[in-house]
């Protein structure tokens, strides 16, 4: 049985002329144990999709099943199969301590008092909040609240875990803790749907990437295949002194100028290179015999650049 099955799901907000369609005929299937990165620019519909899956929003049309359970027709049963972390500054009882919040949400997740207390301690330790667990949540920093959200999402071992930008607001060390916690869950076989603006999260955790654009699912590929979608193999930044080289559009086959201008009394040109090889550099040098090249930097294609190219 698939972990998540989304069939022809649409969701709009508002009515009539002012209606905004946040999701348009989205189809998506996640196999058990998969970790899928959901990418999209702000407003693409990522959070709306997670909310529809997690029963917080009703779809306007279409069907969503989590482990075979319909999220509209069998809402409470579907909630037993999933866990969602939406993050943010709110979502906890500010006057209660993190420990009390976690225990309460454990009970709401179906755990006994004793199990909620025990599991609560584990997840608080997992996100590094044990030392401050007795402090009122309203005194927490943004990053600490984010970690508490993650802890809350890890209270049970769901069939499907959804994380909406889990590392936003975290410092690099905190973010790495969160990635490790999610990686552990992934390795234990939990199906994970993850959104993030930080490509390092996706590259580190996901095996497959889907891209939403204006509410439509436009790409659905294994991570390595997505990198192959790059329109260029690398970006090459060349700077130097003397006479600036000729920099108009495609300077040679497979090499295109994307930016050029003066820099520190000299010049600076950035190329996109479709198939980069040492021969390309030699060909460029032959093309600009007058140019005094001072520095060359090669930036190979990565997910961030591919994403920018695909959603441009």
């Amino acid at each position: 049985m698939v972990a998540l099955e989304i069939v022809d799901v649409s969701r709009s907000f508002g009515r009539g002329d002012k209606a905004v369609q946040a999701l348009k005929n989205v189809d998506l299937t996640l196999e058990p144990g998969e970790t899928v990165g959901l990418l999209g620019v702000n407003g693409a519909g990522k959070t709306t999709l997670l909310k529809v899956i997690s029963t917080l929003l009703l779809p306007t049309s279409g069907t969503v099943r989590v482990a075979g359970v319909d999220v509209v027709k069998q809402t409470r049963e579907a909630r037993r199969q999933l866990s969602v972390v939406l993050g943010g500054e709110r979502g906890f009882y500010g006057r209660l301590s993190a420990r009390d919040n976690i225990r309460y949400f454990g009970i709401l997740s179906g755990l006994s008092h004793r199990a909620a207390a025990a599991r609560g301690e584990q997840v608080l330790a997992q996100v590094g909040l044990t030392e401050v667990a007795d402090r009122a949540v309203e005194t927490y920093s943004k990053g600490m609240k984010q970690r508490l959200h993650i802890a809350s999402g890890l209270l049970t071992t769901p069939k499907l875990l959804m994380l909406d930008e889990p590392t936003v607001g975290l410092d690099p060390i905190e973010a790495e803790h969160v990635r490790e916690a999610v990686a552990q869950l992934r390795d234990s076989g939990v199906t994970i749907l993850l959104t993030s603006h930080y490509m390092v999260d996706i590259e580190r955790l996901a095996r497959r990437v889907v891209i939403l654009q204006a509410g439509q699912l436009t790409h659905d590929l294994p991570l390595e295949r997505l990198l192959e979608q790059a329109t260029s193999a690398a970006e090459v930044n060349v700077s130097g002194a003397g006479v600036p080289p000729l920099t108009n559009g495609e300077v040679m086959d497979g090499v295109r100028v994307v930016r050029s201008g003066p820099l520190d009394g000299g010049w600076n040109v950035t190329f996109e290179v479709r198939d980069w090889s040492p021969a390309s550099l030699r060909a460029l040098a032959d093309l600009w015999p007058q140019a005094e090249v001072g520095d060359v930097r090669v930036l190979p294609a990565n997910l961030e650049r591919v994403f920018a190219q695909l959603t441009r």
């Binding site: 029963t55 917080l56 909630r79 037993r80 979502g91 906890f92 009882y93 709401l108 997740s109």
Partner: peptide, 18 residues
């Protein structure tokens, strides 16, 4: 207003009991 309605509602517990 506290933003806890969504996290409570996303849990399997009966919201009626809550």
């Amino acid at each position: 207003s506290e933003g806890t309605l969504a996290p409570v509602l996303s849990r399997p517990a009966s919201l009626g009991a809550v």
